[in-house]
């Protein structure tokens, strides 16, 4: 069976600066794969290039179909959903409208209702704030809404850009519990994180990005025990590293 995502020799340039220097990675169907690395390593650029929000070189395939020649909205139609860094909630819309925007490509009202119920099961807090404007939510609630909105598009491949960023540990726990529930449904996930410990606990495999190149990759368990990871990203025994 073809992979959910196959990236081959991806390069991203900003002016003269190469932020991503020819990386290759795959996400199998139903797999959670982590992409970890320090701030500025090129993780966000990689995700943006995958959904064609920014120009890039290299080959990208979703479920065997090439991304070449497709615009961002057409990639969404392939069942690929990016939860962007910083959440990008529509602050001028209510929580309900945000969720409905997520279902922009799925207009069937009954189906939409069903998916909204599932989002509420995942994040009960969103159900309590349906009428509230997006920009009045707390950071954690916005992250929940961003993931919920992505789930409304009934994705087959979910790309998550630093869902833990700026959140209190308790909320991080809630978000990651939800991610595991989503993954148990068979969704394929590419998880970008600076929180290496958490990422390696959640994912089956991982790639370590260093200044735009894959420096290391393998099973998450093996990487957790790798001394290079331990010293560079897990910082001995501290719980959180910013790289």
């Amino acid at each position: 069976m073809t992979d959910a995502l196959r990236v081959t020799d991806l390069k991203v340039n900003y002016g003269g600066i190469q932020a991503v220097k020819g990386i290759s990675l795959t996400v199998g169907r139903g797999e959670i794969v982590a992409l970890i690395g320090a701030n500025g390593a090129g993780k966000t650029s990689t995700l943006k290039a995958i959904v064609r929000l920014i120009a890039s070189q290299g080959q990208i395939d979703f479920f065997g179909a090439t991304a070449g020649g497709r615009a961002t909205h057409q990639i969404a139609a392939l069942g690929v959903s990016l939860v962007p860094e910083g959440r990008a909630i529509f602050g001028n819309m209510s929580v309900r409208e945000n969720l409905e925007m997520g279902a922009f490509l799925h207009r069937d009202a009954l189906e939409r209702k069903h998916h909204m119920e599932r989002v509420f099961a995942l994040f009960p807090r969103l159900a309590e704030r349906l009428k509230q404007d997006g920009n009045t939510l707390s950071g954690g609630e916005q992250q929940m809404l961003a993931i919920g909105r992505a789930m409304m598009s009934q994705p087959k491949l979910l790309l998550l850009d630093e869902p833990s960023l700026g959140l209190a540990p308790k909320l991080v726990g809630e978000i990651f519990a939800a991610i595991r529930v989503i993954a148990a449904d068979g969704l394929s996930i590419l998880l970008v994180e600076q929180n290496t410990r958490l990422a390696l606990k959640t994912a089956g495999r991982a790639y370590v990005l260093v200044t735009g190149e894959v420096a290391l990759s393998g099973n998450a368990e093996d990487l957790r025990d790798d001394p290079r990871i331990q010293s560079a990203y897990l910082g001995g025994d501290t719980t959180r590293s910013n790289g």
Binding site: L53, H73, A76, A88, I89, N92, F104, S153
Partner: peptide, 13 residues
């Protein structure tokens, strides 16, 4: 009008 890239991610042409 609020966020062009985010709208594209929702599948908006």
């Amino acid at each position: 009008s609020f966020n062009l890239p985010a709208a594209k991610l929702m599948g908006v042409p």
